[in-house]
Design a protein around this nucleic acid. Structure first.
Lengths: 202, 202
DNA sequence: TATGCTTGTTACTGACCGGTAACACCCCTG
DNA sequence: CAGGGGTGTTACCGGTCAGTAACAAGCATA
C-alpha cells in the first residue's frame, strides 16, 4: 500500500522491469486486437519503453508471441490448483466449479475467447514457435480434464472430458461470432446434463 | 470435357471472368494463410491478373473479404438443400447425415476450421463489413439446426441444437490447436449420444 | 572515482502494405 | 471502320512493417 503503485497497470508502472512491462503490454494488445494486427513499436510504446529495449529482451516478434502464450499457459495452470484448493477431495465439486468458472468467462463481454486457440488460427505456419506452445497447452488442458473426470468415477472419463472440452472450446469461439448471448450462454446447463448422463448410464 | 479446362483451378483459368478468379484466389489464400497475412497483390497475382483490376471489382480489401465470406455462406446454404434431398422427409436421417458430414469435414487434414469463425477471430473491429456477414451466417446456421432438431420430435430442440452447434464449433477450432486426431475425432459418437439422450429422456 | 551493465534516443534499412493515376491495349459491338 | 468498355502495365503515393546501428545517459557496484 505504501508504494501506491498497485492500481497502475503493469505495462505502465515504471517500477517493474521492462521485460515484464513489455509482456504485459503485448498480452493486452495481442489479445484485444490480434497478433498480426499489432506492431512491435506499438507494444514498446504501450510498455513505456522503446523498440530497442524490446529487441534486447526478445529475439523477434515471433519469440515475443511465443512467450506471451507461455505466460498465459502458466497462469491457466494456477487456475487448476486454485480449483483443487477450493474443493479439496471433491472431484465433482471441482468439475462443477470448473464449469461455472468457464461459463462466467464466456459470458464476460470483454473476453475474446481463448488466446491460445485464437493464436492457432492466426498463425497457421507449421514452424512458428508459438505452435508448439499452443499444442502442448491444449494437450495438458485436456489431460487435466480427463484426470478430473476420472476422479468423479464415471465409466468413460476420456469421452466425458472430450465432450466438455469441445463444448467449452465451441462456446468460447462461438461467443466471438454469435455473441455471448448466443448458444454459448447455456454452457453450464449443457455441461451438467452431460455429466449427469455419464454418472447415471442407461 | 471438350473444353479441357475442368481440372484447371478457377483462379488460374483465364476463361472465367476476372472477378470470379479473384474471388477464387482470395478464398484459397485467405483460408490457408489467414486474412491479414495475405496482401491484395498476392491475390491478384494468384488470380492471373493485377491489382488495378482487383480494385475495379472491389472497393477495398475489406470489401473483398466480406464478399469472400458471403460466397462461403451461400455455398453452405447449398449443403443444407443437398442434405434435405438426400434424406427427404427423414429429419433424423438428415441430422445423422449432417453429423457424419461434419465429422468428415473436421477430420480432413487440409481443412483449417470454419472460415467465418476464423475471420471473426482475425477481425475483431466492430465496424468491419465482414462482421455482419459472419453474425448473420452463424445465426442462420443455428436456426437451421434448431429447425431440424425440432422436426425430429425432441422435447427441447433449441437445447439439442445448441449442444450440437457448440460441439461442432469446438471440434473445428480444436482441430487447429489439438490436431484432427484429438478430441475432435469423436464428433459423431458424441453427437449421437446427445441426440439419443434427447430422444429418450429420463 | 571508475567499471560495466541496462536503458533511452534517434535514425536508418529494405521490404511490404493498401490504394491510385495514367496510358496502352484488345476485342466486341455498332 | 469507329467507338467504347474491360483489361493489362507501370509507376507511384504515404504509411507501416520487423529489425538494427551507433551513441548517450543512468545507475549500481567495486
Amino acid at each position: 500500500m505504501s508504494t501506491a503503485a498497485k492500481s497502475v497497470p503493469m505495462s505502465a508502472n515504471l517500477q517493474v522491469p521492462p521485460r515484464e512491462r513489455i509482456l504485459a503490454a503485448a498480452s493486452e494488445l495481442f489479445y484485444r486486437q490480434g497478433i498480426r494486427a499489432v506492431g512491435v513499436e506499438a507494444i514498446a510504446e504501450a510498455a513505456g519503453t522503446n523498440k530497442m529495449t524490446l529487441y534486447r529482451h526478445f529475439d523477434s516478434k515471433d519469440e515475443l508471441v511465443a512467450e506471451y502464450l507461455r505466460c498465459l499457459a502458466t497462469e491457466a495452470g494456477g487456475f487448476w490448483t486454485d480449483l483443487e484448493a477450493a474443493h479439496p477431495g471433491d472431484p465433482r465439486g471441482q468439475l462443477r466449479g470448473w464449469l461455472t468458472a468457464m461459463q462466467a468467462h464466456v459470458a464476460d463481454a470483454d473476453q475474446r475467447g481463448c488466446a491460445l486457440a485464437n493464436a492457432a488460427i492466426e498463425l497457421p505456419e507449421k514452424g512458428h514457435p508459438a505452435r508448439r506452445v499452443i499444442e502442448e497447452f491444449k494437450a495438458a488442458q485436456r489431460d487435466r480434464l480427463v484426470t478430473l473426470c476420472g476422479a468423479t468415477g464415471v465409466a468413460e472419463p476420456e469421452l466425458l472430458a472430450d465432450e466438455l472440452f469441445l463444448l467449452l472450446e465451441g462456446a468460447r469461439v462461438s461467443a466471438q461470432s454469435s455473441g455471448p448471448q448466443g448458444p454459448a450462454s447455456r454452457l453450464v446447463r449443457m455441461g451438467e446434463a452431460l455429466i449427469a448422463s455419464h454418472l447415471a448410464p442407461a
